[in-house]
Amino acid sequence: MLEIGRLPSQRAAMALTDYLKSQGISTHIEHAAQGVIIYVLNERDAAQAKREFNNFIHNPMDGKYLQASWEVGDSKTQLDYGAPGLQLLSQLITGAGPVTLITLMACVAIYIVMLFVPETIFNALSFFGASSDSHWQIWRLFTPSLLHFSLLHIAFNMLWWWYLGGRIENALGSGRLLLLLIVAGTLPNMVQFFFSGPDFGGLSGVVYGLIGYSWVMSQWAPQRGLVLQPSLMGFMLLSLVLGFSGAMGDNIANSAHLAGLLAGLLQGWLDSRRKS
């Protein structure tokens, strides 16, 4: 067998391998720590398979992949995780990595505790100046990103964090996502404080960073296996514009969102130029 590439999810891998099967190319997939590895069984098919792999990551929504799945797809290849609850749990875990899951669980745990002792948690994790005992506590540059103030707030951020962070971590590794989390979870907080003061929180600056990063990598280095549909970038940009216009209310950390997006774009550009 010869590896032709890796994709971030089993669903994407099956779409490609069904198409390769329709072209007479036999494949095998294996789950790895970072995504799904695709192999061709016959090395003489490797060159064609690699071309098709590159075509797929540039345009994964091409109708020919869906058509191939209808024609040659085999439902028996789907993994059996047992009961529906276990299936959901397995999808949650396999769609992400340790950094994604630990951050998600930390945000949820902090939100739950904050329901009972809101002032204690806010005073402990908010930005400099939001509480009287915050001086010289360096973690406050980052920890406001872990604070959420409503169910809708945390649900929106955790959904995007799991989806985008999981794809980045599966495709590029935990170290890359951790760096993005630290940078896009710190610099936007500093910018937001400069423009609006210390009373803010949420992971949305990081989410905008992940969007920017994913879009640049998708455009400039699609061979890394990180694909982002342009419509998602358009949706987030529209949300950003609406936020600055005031249409989404006054309690929106618009400066953090913009700073997070710019940080993600910059990090994506730097990583897209790396050889590995």
Rank of each mutant, 00 (worst) to 15 (best):
W161I: 03
L164M: 14
L187Y: 12
P188N: 01
L164Y: 10
G166I: 06
W161M: 10
V183K: 07
T186V: 07
L180E: 06
P188D: 04
G175V: 12
W162D: 05
M190R: 00
V183P: 04
G166Q: 09
S174V: 03
L164A: 13
W162N: 09
G173M: 11
W160P: 00
G166P: 05
W162H: 15
L177M: 10
N170M: 12
L179Q: 13
G175R: 12
V191D: 05
R176Y: 11
L179E: 13
L187V: 12
L180D: 05
G175C: 10
G173L: 09
N170K: 14
S174H: 09
L178K: 07
A184P: 00
L177V: 03
L180P: 02
L164C: 12
V183N: 04
A171G: 04
E169R: 04
G165H: 02
T186P: 00
A184L: 00
W161F: 13
G166S: 06
I168L: 11
L178E: 12
L187W: 12
V191P: 00
W160V: 15
N189R: 00
P188L: 03
L187I: 14
L177Y: 12
G175I: 11
Y163W: 15
L172G: 01
V191T: 07
W160D: 13
T186L: 10
G185H: 07
L164N: 08
L187M: 09
Y163M: 15
I182Q: 06
L180C: 04
I182D: 07
V183C: 03
S174D: 05
V191E: 06
L177K: 07
R176S: 10
L178S: 08
A171D: 10
L172R: 08
L178Q: 07
E169I: 03
N189H: 01
N189M: 04
A184R: 01
N189G: 03
L164W: 05
I168M: 10
R167D: 14
L177W: 14
T186N: 02
G175E: 14
W161N: 03
G185R: 05
